[in-house]
């Protein structure tokens, strides 16, 4: 009895210490974000003071409009939204249809074809980017939405994710629908898709964030300022306003905010997506 009590006490302390350590580790996770916000509100020269200022003496809200108009960030945001939006729609649509065929329909060579799909995941992105760039260059699509979007419309990861999910839907539901007179499309559209909303949301959220963060492809597929996306624009801004850190941080904060909003709104789907891919 005494021993059990003692152990329980020891365990509690140890757990508290460990929890404290984790909280301590969490501090460096947020400090850069706080510092980013703080710097973005500083005076240009205050930012360069030594020792470094941690908080702005006078909050400079004007940094935001000034930074965001120095380069057409509105245009960048619009481009990124169009880019990410189209890719989300495209990836969800193509992944759902393909995954349905792989998960639910029987046809010769299905498993071999699926393996062939998966093999694309093995190929480093840069191997594909060079020929893809030459393709869209040959089509005259460089620096256009068509070039930017077209290559990203299918995601093998998405097909894999949705296939895994579709396989968990009871087959009897589809059979029931079949007897009820539904064709394959009606089964897909009226039974399978409504039941897969969480998986579709997961894919959509990941596709959106991935494209928003995509840097290399927009960097090579677009050239003009009119076609720029946020990430590339931010990098360019860094080159142009090298010394003005408050401006840079203001732009950086603006670039991060939409992503964090999506993250907070759809945190559930994020966790699910990471867990699903990690465990399968």
């Amino acid at each position: 009895m005494r021993r059990a009590l003692g152990r329980g006490w020891g365990r509690g302390v140890r757990a508290k210490v460990a929890g404290g350590a984790v909280l301590l580790l969490a501090i460096p996770m947020v400090v850069p974000f706080l510092y980013m916000v703080s710097t973005s509100l500083m005076d240009e020269f205050e930012a360069l003071r030594s020792p470094p200022a941690l908080l702005p003496a006078h909050v400079q809200w004007g940094n935001y409009p000034a930074a965001l108009t120095a380069l057409p960030f509105g245009r960048f945001f619009l481009n990124t939204a169009i880019f990410a939006g189209c890719v989300v729609v495209g990836q969800v649509a193509t992944s759902a249809t393909a995954a349905y065929a792989f998960a639910r329909l029987r046809f010769p060579g299905r498993d071999r074809l699926f393996l062939a799909y998966l093999s694309v995941l093995m190929v480093p992105a840069i191997v594909l980017l060079i020929p893809r760039f030459l393709f869209i260059n040959a089509l005259g699509w460089v620096d256009s939405y068509a070039g930017l979007i077209s290559t990203e419309l299918v995601s093998v990861w998405g097909i894999f994710l949705l296939r895994q999910f579709f396989q968990t839907i009871p087959r009897d539901l589809e059979d029931a629908a079949r007897l009820d007179g539904a064709g394959e499309w009606a089964i897909f559209w009226r039974v399978v898709l409504p039941l897969s909303r969480p998986a579709l949301a997961t894919l959509a959220v990941f596709a959106f964030v991935d494209q928003w963060k995509n840097f290399l492809w927009p960097l090579i597929a677009t050239r003009s300022t009119e076609m720029g996306v946020v990430e590339v624009g931010l990098a360019a801004f860094h080159g142009l306003y090298y010394a003005n850190w408050p401006y840079q941080m203001a732009a950086a904060v603006t670039a991060v905010v939409p992503l964090l909003l999506v993250f907070f709104a759809a945190q559930r789907y994020f966790m699910r997506g990471i867990q699903l891919t990690g465990l399968k």
Partner: peptide, 14 residues
């Protein structure tokens, strides 16, 4: 199945 005019009740109801 749709063309056969049969109805089915499944074990787990579906």
């Amino acid at each position: 199945p749709a063309a056969r005019d049969v109805a089915m009740v499944f074990q787990n109801y579906a």
